[in-house]
Amino acid sequence: MADHKGVLVCGEAIEGKLAGVTAEMLGGGRKLADKLDEGLSVVLLGSGVKGLAAEAIACGADKVYVVDDPLLKDYQTDAYVMAMVNAVNQVAPRVVLMGQTSMGRDLAPRLAFRLQTALSMDCTELDIDAQSKALIQTRPVYGGNARAVFTTESLPQMATVRAKAMSPLPRDDARKGEVTDITAGIDASKIRAKFVQKVKEEVTGVKLEEAPAVIAGGRGLGGPDGFKQLEGLARLLKGAVGATRPAIDNGWVPTSIQVGLTGKIVAPELYIAIALSGSSQHMAGCSGSKTIVAINKDPEANIFREARFGIVADWKQALPAFTQKVQELLKE
């Protein structure tokens, strides 16, 4: 095992571009690789992904391994596990990083068990112990109520990384790197669970993850009509509407706007939390926001422990007045 070296990031593409979390992992992975005094590489799996190699190098990678195969066009567990086992065996990294995405959540545990190694999911901090070269893995646990720090002995050391937990490097197109093709080595007959089709749930307006302001509502809004009333404020602030898990589970709003541990992770400039208690599970998805503002009628609600500004008020009276005042102020 002594010949395991370097950090390997498992890259992802979204709509033909390098995913945000991949650039973030290259930023974080660069620091780990420099501490190890070893290389940083990235593996790009998919169909027609070679064009992203230059972008990955500009984001910090020394080496790019391209695994291009039509069988990798859509994410399928068995195909991706086979291709990653193949890539990891060839590259023999000390550390493997993946995004805590719908792919990473599915792929990383199966890959770790196949490779007989250990894995920490959803890490928010990673570091290297200078002496042992061990990967120090910090992750939120108990729905965000606590943090746990883990180390593992088997190689490669594996972790998935939460979105927005690490910072990408400033893009540098002058960086030099090496691009190598790897065969996928997929036995098509061993793909059991098969991708049939994708159904997109269209959300109009600003994308939640990219919105400068997020107006989030919870159980206290009482139903879909309550959420409708958030839209006006969201439009004013060029923001998007988010929701807590209970609102999703009650079917009030589409699942795609869930913010939290099991939903989307957002870090807008302004997060306005309306009629939501601020459970740890929810805060896990928005605690990176620059300013959190709370409107809640319960002065004991946990959200007031998380927010920077707040009012103790019933949202039904507060929201129209707040929206109107914001509109006036923005006109000035």
Partner: peptide, 30 residues
């Protein structure tokens, strides 16, 4: 996996509560 440490993150918890005569007034002042 070896659990090195389990801890609770420290929260600053300095929420500035804006007061008002009623809910609408507090909202405007917010």
């Amino acid at each position: 996996t070896k659990l090195v440490k389990l801890f609770q993150p420290v929260k600053e918890g300095k929420c500035e509560i804006v007061e008002g005569e009623n809910a609408a007034d507090a909202a405007a002042k917010l």
